[in-house]
Design a protein around this nucleic acid. Structure first.
Length: 742
DNA sequence: CATCCGACAGACC
DNA sequence: GGTCTGTCGGATG
């Protein structure tokens, strides 16, 4: 089909929309041929019978053919067309309403068309073919669309807990009724109810969510009808116009509409098979209320109107994600409109726009929402910014899927971790937290779901510039080079330079980022702080590197970087401690480790990609490496996919350190030192190996556990039973401390 | 002026 | 080609 598209567009000058509609019509006809929608005549024959030497008349034939499909069978207009066309039925549904410029066919494109016709279209699965098709057609979308495609499994995670499970529960309850009359009455009422449900996907793409939701409601309807013993309805009560979609891409929109018809036809066939009532597919009804619009610039109430606040509306979908560095100018403008009136919002992901608009749609109503999102909206700096205003609308999270790996057809392990979050104005009890571990699914019923998607209060940890706890050392982000790697030296280059240009060696320092710290890698960098640029430029090797840095900085889109082209010998940001030791905390670091590995370093060693606590004490080391601190990190910190990304403003500065006297402090310091000494017993192991759960030496585990218990005891005498209890305790402490501060 | 993030990126087996 | 785990620099507040 991609070949057909390429062939047609290379030999024709058609508008995008025209091309999209034309291909959609062809697809419908292929499908109609193979599934008996065209009972008397076949489109394939019509095309195949056409004389290949007379291709210039093909557009006229197709154009007439499209007109016929748009003419009611009783219409006198039909008589004006040849007999082999008028045996085709009236299709309607808007698919053939528009008068189209039909493209010309070359012998080559005609052959490709015949190849397409010969495929078996009856087997196509409308829930997935849209995305496949779209990816195959649109060159610039070929690379990205596969990633946005939502599998049926993932769609079910959204719609089952949102409404499907409850409807089936209701059906099962009714089935148990003894009184036949009452039972039938209740079944009719349920039928009526599902015929009034509205499903809305505000970023519907090619319609996956709408199609699956439609099919599932039709299946439920069949079950309801089977349970009825009288007044059996002979037709389906569920209509495509209960399904609403907004989609910015015109082609995706056309495909979504088409897919809804295909799904309807398939469900009609199932309906007939299960209940023995024939459902005519033609003429097509309104194919859902799917509009090609920028969802974020529209008032959703106009597209999905409500008779009253009691209407049963479900907003579902998987809107696009886009972090601050990954948005188009247009998308940033969208966010400006959606979050107008917000003082801070630009650090939010693009996907949160749909949450905020959705939250405003469902507030004070019976409408509910469940959307897929990147896990970053429930971690780190975004949490307070987004969830505070949402909860202030009187909404709560009534079910959630904790972060899971996004699986798609492109790659098994996708490049993002996702969550599913459902919001409603109704305060359900219990609320459900779903957690996937491998192939297993765990369900916890809880009283409240925190914005971090754990059981707990609606407390948010806000960005804080200085430590909440007094008498704690300040933490700093490490140095930032912005040098395009020109100030750095690997071990080999360092050795080489030592030989050929020994006068630069005095400027070289060891440099440590997460990688070097954890894996004991040796890496060096030029540290030209306090050196004269003119002097440095006299050394050819250095001069060459500095030229490259100058060029790199000048080409940056970041103003601050550009202005530093005059100081190419310096790191872009320098915060290196002048003397003494500092604690280095890598960011990020694997979540598999029971503790984030941290270490003391000499100030001569330059830090990058991490956090530094200059002049830190063993006490601070002990607290940061303790289990309770790591528990806190796991809940609140931002993550790189699932990796823990330590942070200053979210984690360290908000962590309620325990209050201690000198004796208690000395005790912690001694236990912290024990850890360092135990590590030193394994000089051949890297920190990554020492803290790998599979290779962590038993004595080191012991030393940590001893420290863990001692730190816990500083908070309260009674031991905690698990991480959840420790974090709940810390949150409470945080709340008290922040209240006091006001 | 300092920090957080990545519908990732790149190394390693 | 899976699997594992952290670079780097822009945008932001």
């Amino acid at each position: 089909m991609g070949r057909l598209f390429d062939a047609i567009s290379s030999s024709n000058q058609l508008e995008n929309h025209t091309m999209n509609v034309f291909l959609t019509r062809l697809l419908f006809c292929f499908f109609a041929d193979d599934t008996n929608i065209f009972p008397k005549q076949s489109f394939s024959q019509l095309i195949k019978n056409h004389n290949i030497h007379n291709l210039e008349s093909l557009p006229k034939l197709l154009s007439d053919f499209f007109t016929i499909l748009n003419l009611e069978e009783s219409s006198s207009e039909r008589a004006k067309y040849p007999a082999h066309l008028t045996t085709f039925p009236y299709v309607n549904g808007g698919l053939f309403a528009e008068v189209l410029d039909v493209p010309n066919f070359t012998p080559r494109t005609y052959r490709i068309l015949l190849d397409c016709i010969d495929l078996d279209w009856s087997e196509i699965n409308p829930d997935i073919f849209g995305s496949m098709f779209q990816a195959g057609i649109n060159p610039e979308q070929r690379s990205t669309l596969g990633q946005h495609y939502t599998s049926v499994k993932n769609i079910m995670k959204v719609i089952q807990p949102l409404f499907l499970d409850k409807l089936y529960e209701e059906l099962e309850k009714i089935k148990l009724l003894k009184d036949i009359k009452e039972k039938n009455k209740r079944l009719s009422a349920l039928l009526q109810r599902i015929s009034e449900i509205k499903i809305f996907d505000p970023a519907c793409g090619s319609g996956n969510f709408l199609i699956i939701a439609y099919k599932e409601l039709r299946k439920l309807e069949i079950e309801i009808m089977k349970a009825m013993s009288e007044n059996l309805s002979m037709f389906s009560h569920i209509h495509l116009d209960q399904f609403y979609g907004l989609e910015i891409d015109d082609f995706a929109c056309e495909i979504a509409r088409l897919s809804m018809w295909l799904a309807e036809h398939q469900m009609n066939m199932l309906f007939e098979k299960e209940l023995n009532f024939y459902q005519p597919t033609l003429p097509l009804k309104n194919s859902g209320r799917i509009h090609c619009r920028n969802s974020l610039r529209e008032n959703w109430l106009v597209f999905v109107p409500r008779q009253s606040a009691d209407d049963e509306v479900y907003i579902i979908g998987n809107p696009p994600f886009g972090g601050t560095n990954n948005r188009t100018a247009e998308q940033s403008k969208d966010m400006g409109q959606v979050f107008s009136g917000f003082r801070i919002f630009k650090s939010l992901d693009y996907v949160t726009s749909w949450f905020w608009k959705g939250a405003n749609y469902i507030k004070d109503s019976n409408a509910k929402l469940a959307l897929v999102a990147t896990n970053s909206i429930c971690q780190g700096e975004q949490v307070a910014v987004l969830w505070k205003p949402i909860f202030n609308l009187g909404l709560s999270i009534h079910f959630a899927y904790q972060a899971f790996i996004w699986a798609n057809n492109a790659r098994d392990q996708a490049a993002v971790h996702t969550v599913i979050i459902a919001l409603s104005a109704e305060n359900f009890y219990p609320k459900f937290i779903f957690k996937e571990k491998g192939d297993e699914l765990f369900l916890t019923k809880v009283k409240n779901i925190s914005p971090y998607l754990f059981e707990g209060s609606n407390l948010f940890i806000e960005n804080r510039l200085t430590p909440l706890s007094s008498n704690v050392s300040k933490i700093y982000l490490s140095n930032v080079p912005r040098d395009n790697n020109n100030l750095f030296l690997e071990k080999e280059e360092f050795d080489y330079l030592s030989k050929i240009e020994p006068r630069v060696i005095k400027y070289v320092r060891r440099v440590i980022g997460g990688d070097e710290l954890l894996n004991s890698r040796l890496r060096y960098c030029f540290w030209f702080k306090d050196e004269s640029l003119d002097e440095l430029n006299r050394i050819p090797i250095v001069r060459e590197k500095l030229e490259k840095i100058k060029e790199f900085r000048l080409s940056s889109t970041r103003e601050g970087t550009v202005s530093q082209f005059t100081t190419p010998h310096l790191f872009s940001e320098i915060r290196q401690p002048e003397k003494g030791n500092y604690i280095l905390i890598p960011s990020p670091s694997s979540e598999r480790r029971p503790y984030i590995p941290i270490d003391f370093l000499d100030s001569q060693i330059i830090a990058i990609n991490s956090f530094m606590i200059p002049n830190a004490t063993l006490f601070e080391f002990g607290i940061i490496t303790s289990e309770i601190h790591n528990d806190f990190v796991r809940v609140v910190t931002g993550r790189l996919e699932s990796r823990l990304r330590y942070s200053a403003k979210v984690v360290y500065n908000n962590f309620p350190f325990p209050e201690v006297d000198d004796i208690q402090k000395a005790h912690i310091e001694q236990l912290a030192e024990d850890i360092l000494l135990t590590r030193a017993d394994y000089p051949a192991m890297t920190l990554a190996q020492l803290y790998n759960p599979e290779t962590m030496p038993e004595p080191l585990k012991q030393a940590h556990q001893t420290l863990d218990r001692a730190v816990e005891k500083l908070y309260r005498d009674k031991p905690f039973s698990d991480a959840a209890e420790r974090v709940a305790f810390l949150f409470q402490r945080y709340e008290e401390l922040t209240k006091k501060a006001v």
